[in-house]
Amino acid sequence: SIEEEIKKAEEAKEKGKTFIHGDFVATTEELLDELLKRLRKKL
């Protein structure tokens, strides 16, 4: 679910890890923020 993806992305951000969502690879905090923004729009 979208909620689960958001939670996983937030955890990755806290730990400074890379998060992959489909073909979107978030390797930096900026990219994770962008991904979180996109996911929240889908809610």
Rank of each mutant, 00 (worst) to 15 (best):
L39I: 07
D23T: 05
L43S: 03
G16W: 06
K42L: 15
F19Y: 12
I6R: 04
T18N: 13
K37W: 00
L39F: 01
G16Q: 04
K42V: 12
E3D: 08
G22P: 08
T18L: 08
E10F: 06
R38P: 00
E30V: 07
S1L: 10
E14G: 10
E3Y: 11
A12P: 00
L39K: 00
F24M: 06
D33K: 08
V25L: 09
D23F: 09
L39P: 00
A9H: 02
K17I: 13
A9L: 12
H21D: 13
V25Y: 11
E11K: 05
G22E: 10
E5Q: 14
I20H: 09
T18F: 10
S1P: 07
V25C: 15
A12I: 03
E29I: 15
T27H: 12
D23C: 13
T28P: 02
G16N: 11
F19W: 04
K41F: 00
E34T: 02
K17P: 14
L32Q: 00
K13I: 04
L43C: 04
L31G: 05
K42T: 11
I6F: 02
A9K: 04
K37D: 13
E11Y: 06
E30H: 09
E30M: 08
R40Y: 13
G22C: 15
L32K: 00
K42A: 14
H21W: 14
D33I: 07
K37G: 10
E5L: 15
K7W: 05
H21K: 06
G16Y: 06
R38F: 13
E3G: 06
K41H: 10
I2N: 03
D23A: 06
K41N: 12
T28R: 00
E34R: 01
L31P: 01
A12T: 02
R38A: 14
K13A: 05
L35R: 01
F19G: 15
A9T: 02
F19M: 14
I6V: 06
S1G: 10
E30T: 08
F19K: 14
I6H: 03
L43W: 02
K41S: 11
E29T: 13
L36R: 01
T27R: 02
S1I: 09
K13L: 09
F19A: 14
D23Y: 06
L36I: 15
F19P: 14
I20S: 03
L31K: 04
K8S: 06
K13S: 03
K13M: 08
L39T: 00
E10D: 03
T28D: 06
D33S: 02
G22A: 06
E34F: 04
E29P: 15
L35C: 05
K37M: 06
E11Q: 08
L36K: 01
S1N: 10
K37C: 13
G22H: 06
R38Y: 14
E3C: 15
L32I: 13
V25G: 02
K7T: 08
G22N: 07
S1Y: 12
E3S: 09
E4C: 13
L35W: 05
V25I: 13
K8Y: 05
D33T: 03
L35A: 03
K7I: 07
K15T: 12
I2D: 03
E4G: 06
K7F: 06
I6W: 02
K13P: 01
T18A: 13
F24N: 02
A26R: 00
K41T: 11
A12K: 01
G16V: 01
K37A: 14
H21Y: 15
E11R: 07
K37P: 01
D33N: 09
G16S: 05
E14Y: 05
I20A: 07
T28L: 12
A26E: 02
E34Q: 04
